[in-house]
Amino acid sequence: MARIEINHLTKNFGGLTALDEVDLSLEKGQIVGLLGPNGSGKTTLIKILNGLLTPTSGSAEINGMKPGVGTKKIVAYLPDRNALPDYMTSDQLIGLYKDFFEDFDSDKAGAMIDDLGIDRKQTLKKMSKGTKEKLQLCLVMARTAEVYLLDEPIGGVDPATRDYILRTIISNYNEDAVVVISTHLISDIESVLDDVVFIKNGRVVLHDKADHIREEKGESVDQLFREVFKC
C-alpha cells in the first residue's frame, strides 16, 4: 500500500477549481518534490492531506486513513506561514511540541535550534521572519514521523541556512518515511529529490524520477520546469 494515495481529488472554492481530478500515489522511502508555480494548487493539496481542508470530491488517504486525528500522529506538517503563538520562546515551544506529539525528540530539536544560532530564550515576536521559519522547521523535523509535509521550507531563508535545512532533511531520511517538499526553488533542492511531481492549474502534469528526467531530457528538473511553466 502506498503511504499517500490520492484518487480523483477535486477541490473547488466557489467557482474556482484549485485541484482538478488529482491522482497521485507516493511510496515510503522517498523524498518527493511537489513543484508548481504560484497558485497551482500545491498548498491546497497539502492542506487537504493535513485535514485543514476537505475535498469537494474524490479522496486523499495516508496509510489508508482519511486525514484526521489518526493521521496527525504520523504526519509532521510545516505550514506555509507561521502557525506558532508569538509570545512563546523556543524552549517553551519545545515543551509544547513534546506535549502534543509522542514522536517528538526534544534533544534533537534543541540541538538543531542551537546549530542555527537561535536564542532559546527569545520570544517569537522578536524574531525575524526567516528565524521564525527556521525554528518552525526544527520543530517539525525533530519528529520521527512517517510522513513529512513541508510547504515551502526554504522560501524565506538565506542560502547557508538552505544548505543546513537540506542536510537536515537528508540526515533525517529514513526508509519508512515519505518527505513531500513543495517549492518553486527547484535548483536548490533537485539533487535531494527522488520523485518530482509537477502541478499546473490544479492538475498533476508530470510524475517521474528526478534522475530519469535528467537522463531522458538531458536537462535539469529546473530547466524542464521553466519550459513546462513558461509564461
Partner: peptide
C-alpha cells in the same frame, strides 16, 4: 551512505 549523501547534498537513495 548517509554521510556521503549529506556531504554531497544528494538523496541517500541516489
Amino acid at each position: 551512505v548517509r554521510d556521503l549523501a549529506m556531504d554531497a547534498g544528494v538523496n541517500p537513495n541516489t
